Amino acid sequence: MPRLRWCIRLLTLGSALLQAAAVQAQPDVVQGAAPACRQLVASGNPQYPPYLWRSTESSERLVGANVEMLTWLSKEVGVPIEARYVGPWARVQEEMRAGRIDLIAGAFFTLARTEYMDYFHPAFRETRSVVLVRSGSNLDYRRWSDLAPLQGGTVIGNSFGEEFDRYAKENLQLTQVSGLAQALQMLQRSRIDYLIYEDSPALAYVARLNMQNVRPLRPAVASESLYLTLSHRSPCNTPELRGRLARAMYALSRQGLMNGWIDSNIQVWKRIGPAP
């Protein structure tokens, strides 16, 4: 009987050693993460130059400053990150809620979104959302209440901060459409009186669509921070990976890397030329 117990112990020890060797042979798996965590899939608003846009009309590949950020992050956390087009901005948020994508590269903070994704601090960019009108508009915009009598527009799923979102829901008439190009065309054709969107992406689209009669108003509706987020349902959402991402975002902010990526991708967007 002692000999049998000794044999069982040897077999158990051998099995443990084999399992340890198998884990060491998989360096792409984050320590402490689920075994399925060999890659992170990221997405975001695909109509968001210079931050993010599709490489071609039919491509699933995203390009832009945020993709450069994800490439840098991939090296920092030791896990490959694929930037993938999954649909318009509203669909991106649905995919994130369901856990079919892991990361969103560029989301404003709202309490509702914290129900299905984690935010990483610090933010990687500060942005301004503005009111855009036709050049001949006589809208004298000074405060939010000046917009109340008019018909406005925005893109489905967009947020402009908790305070403004609440005010808009209760007081403004906003038509929501699936894409920024469609919203700008509605503004140009006088189907809406004004459009609310972030200034840099909106003006990039205005230039690409060669719209001479659209201009932003001041002051800004809101100034908001852009964050990297991780889905609660991601198989890679572990304390270990969250820690790595948090440290990486802190290093990114301290080094000021985002400014250079944005500047270079503004030039890339300009070289693309007018939209078809």
Rank of each mutant, 00 (worst) to 15 (best):
G256E: 00
A20L: 13
G99M: 12
Q173F: 10
L132C: 09
A204I: 02
V131G: 00
R142T: 12
Q39W: 00
R38M: 01
I81W: 03
Q26P: 07
D193K: 07
L228E: 05
V130W: 07
T114N: 04
N66D: 13
G243H: 04
H232R: 13
G243M: 11
T56C: 11
A222K: 01
P201W: 02
S58C: 10
S58E: 15
F160M: 02
P239H: 08
A183S: 13
S231E: 04
K75V: 05
D199S: 09
E170V: 05
A42M: 11
Q212G: 12
P149C: 06
R218E: 12
E224N: 02
A34T: 07
T110V: 03
Q267P: 07
R247K: 14
Q173A: 12
Q173I: 08
V130H: 13
L13P: 06
A25K: 06
L174G: 07
E60M: 14
L257I: 04
I272Y: 08
W144N: 00
V130P: 00
L147M: 11
L203I: 07
S58R: 15
E162N: 10
A112C: 03
D102H: 06
I101G: 04
S59D: 05
P201G: 03
E94I: 06
E170I: 02
A90I: 10
V92D: 02
S145E: 15
R143P: 04
D199N: 09
Q24C: 14
